[in-house]
């Protein structure tokens, strides 16, 4: 079953100068086609300005393709009647943790989505409780979001989306503003949701090491998908990744260097355990 399907999705916008005259047209997403299966963990990787966030915003019907079509759970995002169903089945977590928390108490924020959907009070509480437990933030339910760390805030945001019972969660650079600890916690929470709750996860990021557990990776550059495959397939192409100035994990890089210097190692080593095994130790 495919949850998100894009066919030749193109997004163009007109740049204007201060007087409002047309300066030119920018193509942020250029003929992207992809098919994401229900229950997958997908990573979309790319630099700032590669079009990855623009593409993500299409999946939640915040933006609409200027050409091509995007379906969420079989529904065309251009179909206005389905707008709220689409936003409910494909939830979105954004980059800046401060700018997406609406509630002044953690639990109230998590309840915001279900409230909008018109869920009965009793069920809202059940959903809030289970969502906060799923991201390991239940003990903070009475706290003010302002007193939480960045990683904790992002996990609250994930819970807020989870409480809407989506089929798919799109995380748009959720870790870009976090410290290493916060980053680990957020990625761990996303992986757990995928493993336990079988929610489809689409992780948009520019950190390579966050993508090694994904089922599939799409690498974007200048609006197009330029590489696609499993992490092992992607990380086997070290020279190409370096050329695209993406961060290759140090283990992969080390294995690659050793291989270049004549050692007999396979391509695409992702963890230190794999390296040790490959070295025959």
């Amino acid at each position: 079953m495919s949850i998100i399907k894009a066919k030749d999705v193109t997004f163009e916008y007109i740049r204007r100068d201060e007087e409002g005259n047309v300066e030119g047209i920018t193509t942020a997403v250029d003929k992207v086609s992809l098919d994401i299966k229900q229950g997958d963990f997908i990573a979309i990787l790319g630099h700032n300005g590669s079009g990855k966030s623009t593409l993500a915003k299409h999946m939640n019907a915040i933006l609409y393709p200027t050409e091509g079509t995007l379906w969420v759970d079989g529904k065309d995002t251009k179909d206005e009647k389905e707008l709220w169903n689409i936003r409910q089945s494909a939830g979105m977590v954004f980059q800046n943790p401060d700018n997406q928390i609406i509630g002044q108490v953690v639990e109230e924020d998590v309840g915001f989505g279900p409230e909008n959907m018109g869920i009965p009070t009793k069920e809202i509480w059940e959903r809030v409780t289970e969502s906060l437990k799923a991201v390991d933030m239940y003990e903070y339910r009475k706290h003010s979001p302002n007193k939480l760390s960045g990683g904790q805030k992002q996990r609250v945001s994930i819970a807020g989306v989870l409480a809407m019972h989506p089929k798919c969660i799109i995380l748009d650079e959720p870790t870009a503003m976090l410290d290493p600890d916060g980053r680990k916690d957020v990625i761990r929470a996303a992986r757990a949701l995928n493993d336990v709750e079988k929610v489809t996860i689409i992780l948009i990021t520019h950190y390579m090491e966050e993508t090694i557990y994904a089922d599939r990776i799409f690498v974007m550059e200048e609006g197009s998908v330029v590489m696609e495959g499993t992490p092992r397939e992607i990380f086997s192409r070290v020279e190409e990744l370096k050329k695209r100035r993406l961060d290759v994990p140090q283990v992969t890089l080390l294995a690659h260097e050793l291989k270049k210097r004549g050692m007999d190692l396979p391509d695409g080593i992702l963890t230190k355990e794999e390296l040790i095994e490959a070295l025959g130790l």
Partner: peptide, 13 residues
């Protein structure tokens, strides 16, 4: 701007 987008994404209408 960000907040408005986040609210809409969470079905606020």
């Amino acid at each position: 701007n960000d907040l408005a987008m986040a609210m809409e994404a969470r079905c606020y209408r």
